[in-house]
């Protein structure tokens, strides 16, 4: 039997200052997230400089709370893990420099983690992985299909050619005058609306697992604009439902096709948009005719957190893949 290991994870790639302590990559001992959403709301989106300022103010407070909840001493921690990218560079640097300081002060190895690997490994906090598996990653910055044949190996089989799904959600929400962040607002409205408008779906050819949401985004914005010009009434609920149906259809169909092509044992959904009820239902329904389980983490593990970073780092810890002191933030780090 392998020896237990406990990893402290830090995540500051966007607008959440997060620290978590995880045992063996699976067991949450503490998971603290300090959200800045209120500070960015008035700007209608995340302001990088403000995010960085908040991270510096919060970092030791969140660290202290994570230790308090876990009831652990430093002796029991085996490694320090931190998101090295992708993300907002100024924001990443706070987590990275804090992680280096901890690692140096307590002589613990340092591990740099890919943010998307983190989102995928959020699922392992609930269910053990079976390979090959397919991961659908959907967030404000990402829309990707990733095939995993083993722990820590990732093959990108599809990605967005323009906007991320979450980005399209935020822009449509803004056009409808909904408060930031718009994704959950559209999801909520979509449930009371009906799919009455036939917005486009970008399939990009039968064999493609890539995505495109910019055409859909323009179509929805034009629709709203035209209605306004003609002074016709619009139903925000129906627009939300129709837009969401278009996004969810494409995501579900492509995930389904890829799962069959690669004969996967599990489908994993990860990223902030995995919290979307419409998407969850559509995927579960579609796969209900197969034996492939669809794993979706609970909401608090879909949005950015550090538990997922420490969970992904567990594999790197077992393989002794440690980072040097010159670890730096990489805003467009690739998942390989």
């Amino acid at each position: 039997m392998k020896k237990d290991h406990i990893i402290l994870g830090i995540e500051t790639s966007c607008d959440e200052t997060a620290v978590a302590i995880i045992k063996n990559g699976k067991e949450i001992m503490s998971n603290v997230v300090s959200s800045q959403i209120e500070s960015h709301k008035r700007f209608g989106g995340v302001v990088p400089e403000i995010a960085s300022r908040h991270h510096v103010e919060q970092i030791t407070v969140v660290l202290e709370e994570a230790f308090r909840q876990a009831e652990l001493s430093w002796d029991e921690i085996n490694a320090i893990a931190v998101t090295e990218g992708p993300g907002l560079v100024g924001a990443l640097l706070i987590g990275i420099n804090a992680a280096k300081a901890l690692s140096f002060a307590k002589s613990k190895p340092l591990i740099g983690v890919h943010h998307i690997a983190g989102h995928i490994y959020a699922n392992r906090l609930k269910t053990e992985f079976e390979f090959p598996l397919l991961a659908l990653i959907v967030s404000g910055g990402h829309t990707e299909l990733v095939l995993m044949k083993d722990h820590g190996t990732y093959t990108l089989i599809g990605e967005t050619l323009d906007d991320a799904a979450g980005e399209a959600y935020d822009k449509i929400a803004r056009s409808l005058g909904l408060p930031y962040p718009g994704g959950p607002q559209i999801d909520r409205l979509a449930h009371t609306g009906e799919v009455t408008i036939d917005f486009p779906r970008a399939w990009l050819g039968d064999e493609s697992f890539d995505f495109s949401f910019s055409g859909l985004k323009s179509a929805v914005i034009n629709y709203i604009h035209n209605k306004k010009q003609k002074e016709e009434k619009i139903s925000k609920e129906d627009i939300a439902a129709s837009f969401q149906a278009s996004v969810v259809d494409v995501l579900t169909e492509k995930t389904f096709k890829a799962a069959q092509k690669y004969d996967v044992k599990q489908v994993i959904v990860a990223g902030g948009v995995a919290a979307n009820k419409g998407l969850r239902k559509s995927l579960v329904d579609k796969f209900s005719t197969t034996t492939i389980p669809v794993l979706i983490p609970p909401i608090e593990l879909c949005t950015d957190n550090a538990a997922m970073i420490a969970a992904a780092a567990s594999i790197q810890y077992e393989r002794q893949q440690f980072a040097p002191w010159d670890l730096n933030g990489k805003p467009s780090l690739q998942l390989t």
């Binding site: 400089e49 960085s52 300022r53 991270h55 510096v56 970092i59 030791t60 660290l63 202290e64 430093w74 100024g90 640097l93 706070i94 420099n97 804090a98 280096k100 300081a101 901890l102 140096f104 002060a105 307590k106």
Partner: peptide
């Protein structure tokens, strides 16, 4: 420099807190 200052401050305060 905003970023430069934050790097020193983050490192210093995390060291002070940990130690």
């Amino acid at each position: 420099s905003y970023t430069g200052t934050r790097i020193g401050v983050t490192t210093a305060k995390t060291l002070a807190w940990t130690l």
